[in-house]
Nucleic acid binder design. Structure first.
Length: 804
RNA sequence: GCCCGGGUGGCGGAACGGUAGACGCGAGGGGCUUAAACCCCCUUGGGCCGAUUCGGCCCGUGUGGGUUCGAUUCCCACCCCGGGCACCA
């Protein structure tokens, strides 16, 4: 009977489902393990990235289940969002229909992989029963002042016709579609993530099971800088403006000041000056160039605006410029410029002939421009002679004493812009009333149902705005005429709390039962792509902290252990449909089977690394499975006198190795022991093996293989006469005595170079090892006539003889 | 520029500071076969030496140093590749 992967895989997928093996309930008596892969966008086609993700996830689900844990492994769909809407605009099929058809397709494909989930917990963010809790969450944030609407300069994607969060702008381009983003002044909804900045930053330190890379990226994104802010008086006026600097110790070196062209004071200051026309032209030009252009142009440009600022420490007047290298979005949008210690200021000063004063003594061999390193403070009055830290402390004390400024901290992190001018998302549950203003929709009126419409093409405002019968409503406060908010929420809102919902997915009364969450949370293992290092993972941490503050969550951090998988490459490029270099997993299910494909993904390299695809590798894992199949199903003659003790011992060693490797996420090295034991079993079966040894070795192989290639493992388990389901069997344990070796190969080195190998008893005494090594024939030729200075003995593995 | 990773055979990759190259792919040779596929066996880092089927030596983990009896592994400097961040004051 040949190995028929197709028939076997279909059979067992049906069995697992009907046996409901992976449906779980909270049970305090059993240790829990919440295992989660980032819920996918239902694109309609499983690709190798999904396969890799779910193979790792399913391996853990099955392994931890066999190891005795109560394993929660749910799957759901990140089903709101632009791709569905854009596809719908192209095909004319409504996003809801399209999305639901794609969910059905992908569900089938995920099941074909043999990945098991508790499907009773399936959720989809576009369903009313899900997004009503998005809206509920919004209302809680609104009540706490954490959701607010304000006019702001925001990122606008001209192709997707919607605003974007800062996190969704990559190098000045839309993260989704790649279009160059524009700046627009619009009234938008924000979540006040900046209230949580310090906590988000501090708690990164507690995430010691996260990749360092991701922790660093989050720290960088939050971008904490410590320094001082203080007021600069504009000479001969009543105006002053705040500046922020990380180097207040260099204040005596300020030879000019710069305002961002968008700074609120600019308009008033330039009015009526000689420089007004020139300044206005500059502001217009700066305002019309995109961020991409501003980034590309690193040449410093600016205009003197005809006013001076007074340096508080020495009352010197310095010219004020406007220049676009000072960004309105960071700090106060204004700086004291110290060309001696800042390269950007240096370039500007050099270009416009402004004085440069060094206030930090550079080393003698320094020949650069601005000196940003440490050194003794010079040319700085009462700060002279102090090192950086002392000087900073002294000047802050001085500023505070004079009530001019103070030590402050600035962050790069901005509030999270969550409103979108698109259709396929959760409507923001707010009503605008002429009399009452912005009124939140009462909780008992949720959900605000997304109306089914036919024209959802983007027009620069939400398509919902055109649906009069939906927009026009009554004010929940006064009963008068009112209009609904027409923006929808960023889909990252949906994904920032779905892992809580999985703990209690059918709750119609609450977002989730805090008791369910307290049993299952935190997610013990979270698996997904590193592209979410900042976006989703930061938002999810923020919302978790909000839920914690509300008493709904017992954890401050949602994901205890994070695992980011590498991507699949082909011919050096990321495998993707747009590059046309995909190898379709569905074809491989047919030709090689899900088991061989899964095994290849595990085997191809370290799971965190990018991996180069090679279909020949799947041929290899299929060959291995076929060989295992044949030896298990075709061995029918046994020799009870044969000695297979070494093979059995190797099987036990494999148990140890595989167990430890899975625990350490070294999946690629967990596969080879199965291959070598199988190969040795084939040899042993050929030369003679007892039935007992054969059964012990094959049972170990099936159990170890069960999380990796579950279908064939289950089938062989059944064919071997077991009535039980392998997935419910306990994980094997190794016999520590059995894996001990009676004899080992001892390496003998002379001066660290390998010169001989000697078989020795494993429990050889150090003295015996040394004597044996020194008397070995081959060693004699190396040490003859030489003085033996030292002998290092690491019995029973190694002896190193050091000669003169 | 700053911050993370990473440089090992033809390829993917293994190696608690202790036998470098496990396992797999590819390649070469052989067996089975009328033939091919499948399958099975052998070889496979480079160079050299001796020899009746076996053995031996030298070199070799990006480069140069260092620590150590011993370094792919630890330390320092440098080079290259990948990724992230960046007029962030």
């Amino acid at each position: 009977m040949a190995y028929d992967h197709k028939a076997i895989e279909e059979k067992w997928q049906a069995r697992w489902e009907s046996e409901r093996i992976f449906e779980v309930a909270a049970d305090e008596a059993i240790p829990k393990f919440y295992n989660l892969c980032m819920y996918p966008y239902p694109s309609g086609a499983l690709h190798q990235g999904h396969v890799r993700n779910y193979t790792f996830g399913d391996l853990l689900t099955r392994y931890k289940t066999m190891a005795g844990f109560n394993v929660l492994s749910p799957l759901g769909w990140d089903s709101f969002g632009l791709p569905a809407e854009n596809a719908a605009i192209e095909t004319g099929v409504h996003p809801k229909e399209n999305t639901e058809a794609q969910i059905a397709t992908m569900t089938r494909q995920v099941k074909q992989l043999g990945a098991m989930y508790d499907w009773t917990r399936e959720l989809a963010s576009h369903s009313e029963e899900y997004y009503r809790w998005d809206q509920w969450l919004f209302l809680q944030l609104f009540e706490q002042g954490l959701a607010y609407k304000r006019e702001a300069l925001v990122n606008w994607c001209p192709r997707d016709q919607t605003v974007l969060a800062n996190e969704q702008v990559v190098d000045g381009h839309c993260e989704r579609c790649g279009a160059e983003v524009e700046r627009r002044n619009l009234a938008q909804w924000f979540f006040k993530i900046t209230d949580y900045t310090e906590r988000l930053l501090e708690d990164i330190d507690t995430l010691d099971e996260w990749p360092e890379r991701v922790r660093t990226m989050q720290r960088n994104w939050i971008g904490r800088s410590q320094g001082a802010s203080f007021a600069l008086q504009v000479a001969d006026t009543d105006h002053s403006f705040e500046v922020f600097t990380t180097r207040p110790d260099t204040i005596f070196g300020m030879t000019f000041a710069v305002l961002s062209p968008e700074h609120h004071l600019v308009e008033e200051l330039i009015a009526g000056t000689e420089q007004e026309a020139e300044a206005r032209a500059y502001i217009r030009k700066a305002g019309s160039s995109s961020d991409v252009e501003r980034m590309a142009n690193t040449d410093k440009t600016g205009v003197f605006i005809g006013h001076h600022a007074v340096n508080p420490v020495d009352s010197r007047s310095v010219p004020i410029y406007i220049a676009d290298y000072v960004l309105m979005g960071y700090g106060t949008g204004a700086i004291m410029a110290v060309p001696g210690q800042d390269q950007r200021d240096w370039e500007f000063a050099t270009k416009y002939g402004i004085e440069i004063i060094r206030t930090v003594q550079p080393p003698d061999d320094f020949d650069g421009d601005a000196y940003t390193g440490d050194g003794v403070t010079i040319n700085s009055g009462f700060l002279d002679g102090l090192e950086r830290e002392g000087a900073i402390a002294a000047i802050i004390e001085w500023l505070e004493a004079k009530n001019i400024g103070e030590g402050t901290v600035q962050y790069r992190l901005r509030d999270w812009l969550i409103s979108r001018q698109r259709y396929w998302g959760s409507p923001i549950p707010v009503v605008n009333c002429d009399g009452c203003g912005m009124v939140p929709v009462p909780e008992d009126q949720l959900p605000v149902v997304l109306p089914h419409i036919l024209d959802y093409a983007p027009k620069g405002r939400s398509p919902l705005a055109a649906v009069d019968e939906w927009v026009n409503t009554t004010c929940p406060a006064c009963g008068g005429e009112a209009r609904r908010e027409t923006d929808t929420m960023d889909t990252f809102v949906d994904s920032s709390w779905y892992f809580f919902r999985f703990t209690d997915p059918r709750n119609a009364e609450q977002i989730f039962d805090p008791r369910a969450a307290s049993y299952w949370m935190p997610v013990d293992q979270y698996i997904g792509g590193v592209e979410h290092a900042v976006l989703h993972l930061l938002y999810a941490r923020f919302i978790t902290k909000v839920l914690f503050d509300m008493g709904l969550s017992t954890v401050k951090e949602p994901f205890a252990r994070l695992f980011t998988q590498g991507m699949i490459t082909l011919d050096g490029a990321k495998m993707s449909k747009s590059k046309g270099n995909v190898v379709d997993p569905l074809d491989l299910f047919e030709s090689h089977g899900a088991d061989a494909l899964r095994l290849y993904h595990l085997f191809m390299g370290p799971p965190t690394d990018d991996a180069a695809w090679d279909t020949n590798g799947v041929d290899g894992t299929l060959r291995f499975l076929d060989r295992l199949w044949r030896v298990v199903t075709e061995t029918d003659r046994f020799d009870e006198s044969a000695d297979a003790s070494e093979l059995v011992a190797d099987a036990h060693r494999a148990v140890k190795k595989v167990t430890e490797d899975i625990d350490n996420f070294h999946f690629n090295t967990a596969v080879p022991p199965l291959m070598t034991v199988t190969n040795d079993l084939v040899d042993q079966a050929r030369s003679g093996i007892s039935r007992e040894a054969f059964v012990e070795v094959t049972e170990i192989l099936m159990k170890l293989l069960s999380p990796m290639a579950p279908h064939i493992a289950h089938e062989l388990w059944e064919l071997s006469g077991h009535e039980t389901i392998l997935a419910r069997e306990p994980w094997p344990v190794w016999d520590p005595e059995m894996i001990e070796r009676a004899s080992v190969t001892m390496v003998v080195q002379v001066d660290g170079k390998l010169r001989d190998r000697i078989e020795v008893e494993a429990d050889i005494a150090a003295a015996d090892a040394e004597r044996l090594a020194l008397s070995a024939e081959k060693i004699q030729t190396w040490i003859e006539g030489k003085e033996i200075r030292k002998v290092i003995v690491r019995e029973p593995n190694l002896v190193n003889i050091v000669v003169g």
